[in-house]
Design a protein around this nucleic acid. Sequence first.
DNA 1: GTCTATAAGAAGATAGAC
DNA 2: GTCTATCTTCTTATAGAC
Lengths: 205, 205
Amino acid sequence: MTTKQRILDEALTLFSEKGYSAVYVGDIAEAVGIKPPSLYKHFKSKQDIFNGILEILTQDYNKQATELQLDGVNADKDVGVFSAISEDELLKMGRELFLYMLHDDKVRKFRKLLTLEQFHHWELAEIYTKQYVDEPLSYQTTLFSLLLTKGNLEGGVPDIMALHFYAPIYLMLTLCDRDAKREEEAVQLIEGHIRQFSKMYGGEL
Amino acid sequence: MTTKQRILDEALTLFSEKGYSAVYVGDIAEAVGIKPPSLYKHFKSKQDIFNGILEILTQDYNKQATELQLDGVNADKDVGVFSAISEDELLKMGRELFLYMLHDDKVRKFRKLLTLEQFHHWELAEIYTKQYVDEPLSYQTTLFSLLLTKGNLEGGVPDIMALHFYAPIYLMLTLCDRDAKREEEAVQLIEGHIRQFSKMYGGEL
DNA sequence: GTCTATAAGAAGATAGAC
DNA sequence: GTCTATCTTCTTATAGAC
C-alpha cells in the first residue's frame, strides 16, 4: 500500500469518528507514522485529503451498486433470483444487507463520515440520502412490485412495503453505529421483523 | 431574554448545524451581537457553553417525556385513550409524533447536535439512543402490548409491531433533517405506512 | 519522500479600562 | 457587562536540507 493510500485510509478512520474539523493534519500524520509536512508531498491541503477520500468512496459505492444491482434500476434483473422467494430467502437478504453495511469497514466509515458532515455540506447530504434512503427504497420498491405482479406477495403497495422492509434495518444500522454492543439484539429484531413482514405480506411464502 | 440565554440559543443553532469544533467562540459572539471576550462573563469556556446547552435540553426532554408520557413507563396510562383506537387515531398519533419532532425548534436542533457529536462523546450517543430508539420503542411496545390484550390489534408481537410502526417515522425524520424540502413526501409516506400498518394488524379497526 | 525549522494566521482565553 | 488590547497555544502550511 502506497503512502498516499495509507494517508487516505487513516484520514478516513479519523474523519469518520471525529468529523472533519476536529481532526488535525498532525493526527493524520501521526496515524500514518510520518511528520505533518510530509503529507503535503501527497496532498496539497487537508481539504484535498478529504476530497480524495470522497472520490474513492463514491467510486467504490457506484461500483458495488452496479455489481450488486442495488441501484434500483436493475432490480428487475433480480426477479429471476427472487421470483420464487421464500421467507428464509427474504430473511437472508435482510440480514446480509444489514451485516454488510454494518461490518464492511469502508462502507461503515463512509456512512459515519456522511453522518457527521451531512448538515455542513449540501453535497454530502445528497450522497447520504441517495445511498441510505432513495436507492435502497427504490430497489426494493421495484423488487416488491415485481413480486406482487407474480402473486408471490400480496396485500400491499410496493413503496410502502419497501419502507416497511427497509426502515427497521436502517434504524438498527444507525443504532449499531453508535453502540456496537447492540448488534446481536439488532439482528434478532431484524429477523423477527422480517418473519412478521413475510407473514403479513406473504402470499405463497 | 437574558444575554446568557441568548448565548445558549445562538450556540445551539450553530452547534446543531456545524458541530462543536467547527463553531468558533467568535461565531457565537457575532450571532449574539457581542464581542468574544464578553462571552466569558457568562461562561467560563466554550465547553461550558456546550455543557449548558446539554443540561437545559436534557431537562426539557425529561420534562416533555413525563408530560407526554413518552417514556415507556407510563404507556399503560394511555390505554384509556387508545383502547378504542381507530385507524384515524393511529394515523394522527404517528403524524403528530413526526411533525412535532421535526418542527419543534429545540427538539430538532438538539437531535442534530446529537447526530453530529454521537461518535465523539459516549454520553451523547447514549442520549441519542435513549431519545430516538429505546424510549419510543419501549413506549409503543407497551402500548401495542395492551392493545393486543384488549383484542384491538392482533397478529403481531408487540416489540416487532413497535419497530414496524416507529422505524419508518424515524427514517423520514432523519431524511427531513437533511432536506426540509422532502417533508410533504415524507408525511404522505408515513400516512400510507400507517394505513397499511393498521390494515395488517387491525383487528376491529 | 521524509525530515527540521519556521512562518502565518486562527482560535480560545485573559487583563483591565469604561 | 461590554469593550479594546493582548497573550498563548494550536493549526495549517511552506522552505529547504538530506
